[in-house]
Amino acid sequence: MTRFILIALSLLFLGLMVILPVIAIFHRAFADGFDAYRAAILDPETLAAIRLTVIATLLVLPLNVIFGVAAAWAIARFRFVGRRVLLILIEIPFAVSPIVAGLCFLLIYGAYGPVGALLEPYGVQLMFNLTGIVLVSAFVTCPFVMREVLPVLMVTGEDEELAAVTLGANGWQIFRHVVLPNISWGLAYGVVLTMARAMGEFGAVSVVAGAIRGQTMTLPLQIELMYNDYNATGAFAAATVLTALALVTLVLRGVLNRFGPKKEAHA
């Protein structure tokens, strides 16, 4: 009986809160027929938004992979001043509201901020363009890779790396042949989470993107814009694209879970 209630409750909740909205998105997007949907997707502004979102995400990923892995390795293997602080600092993006994060970036890197003002004479503008979008997206997603990789490093321990040291491997070889294969699944998982979040981020990006139509509108911003313009078909059509991207990452995640902690045959 308990079992039945628990399962029923979970399914009901999931249905109402997750499945129904997703169905609603697709239902509304196709409400005016497939041609209208097609036209909405092929709208130049929407296409530009899709392109920008994908580009920004692809730029954020390497940033976070490099930083996340480096930070996780440092925290797992070395005792240094500021190690604990780093562990706490890295959580800040989880705790801070994205819109606040966006405002902070504007304050610092905007034309009147300390860093922005420094760069302005050289014609370098950080905010209201792709750079700004990438910067805040990197901030918002920065804990993901590190949070996935750190526990794996903690569990695998240092011994294999020490063995590699005694066998004459240099730092890069140790990373490439020993550390990377051991953390690969955690890293992949972190990448998937980063991707999902970077594509869907709204709050922080909305502050620094500057809302230039067809230029600095990411997909989530574009969706809101169209919705506010009473272009519901356009908004929901764009939403299906974002949902589809999210579903792709979900599938990736499922694949990772399914085949996750297994040995890799190659070194």
Binding site: E160, T166, G168, A169, K263
Partner: peptide, 29 residues
Amino acid sequence: PAGQRHFGFVFQNYALFRHMTVAQNIAFG
């Protein structure tokens, strides 16, 4: 540095590379 001493080290728990085969482990150095 340890890597330049050319001393072989056998660890207490062996510290074999878990994602490498026996042959790859042996060939690593």
